[in-house]
Amino acid sequence: MIKDITLGQYFPSDSIIHRLDPRFKIVIMIVYMIMLFSGDSLICLGIGTLYTLISVVMTKISFKLYIKSIKPIFPFLIFTALLNIFFIKDGDIYFQWKFIKITSSGVDTSIFMIVRIVLLLIGTSVLTYTTSPIVLTDAIERLLNPLKKIKFPVHELAMIMSIALRFIPTLIEETDKIISAQKARGAELDSGNLIAKTKGLIPILIPLLISSFRRAEELATAMECRCYNGGDGRTRLRQMKSGISDYIALFFTVLFFIAVIIINHIIK
């Protein structure tokens, strides 16, 4: 049951998007986010949707997987959309009954919010589905490199991120094991009131915490044994090379962005 959690799952394949330089992908991602939130008209939203659909098709990953990434937040989306519809009172009135008032501006806000969040999620999924977490943290490190000038610990931060990502599956497995072991001793995990349930977590959390510390210590020793002393002077296994396709991808993204800005301006 715990194994069902997916966190930025990577689906290896050989599409154009997979092969893009991860640094460019992150920059494109940022431009894409700004684009989604800078257009106020339906046409701008349409352009955003078109851009998203094109990238999704280009990843050659089944559309079902993208749907799966939206599913968990769906109830939340519906809930906030309803709040917006019922509580925004300005604009033209579409429908009125006693104290319930549905207005054009309320409906607009809800539609924009839903579409933007869905697009945002699909967009980020395009990034995480096509880029392995390790490569992603590598790219973040490179992008943040200039910050080293102001003594910001870029390498350390990236190392912390990759270690955290690396240990997620391990800890999930460990949790499963501890839960089974405590159940075998008659622990009740999912019955009783809130206090009983919280107390029931102690036999799981304490061993998990202790084993995390143990692992951290072992990992630190293992790294020291291999003479790890931070990022200075380290060379890399994977060199990142940007090619013509990266620039083309960035160019098209910026083109869409400019289109959104211009249309937004004209319509206003």
Partner: peptide
């Protein structure tokens, strides 16, 4: 099923990791 777990005691591998 909980009664079954009292009847059949199971000690996992490396059980010292479940001490708390």
């Amino acid at each position: 099923i909980r009664q079954v777990r009292f009847k059949v005691g199971l000690v996992f591998q490396y059980p010292e990791y479940q001490l708390f």
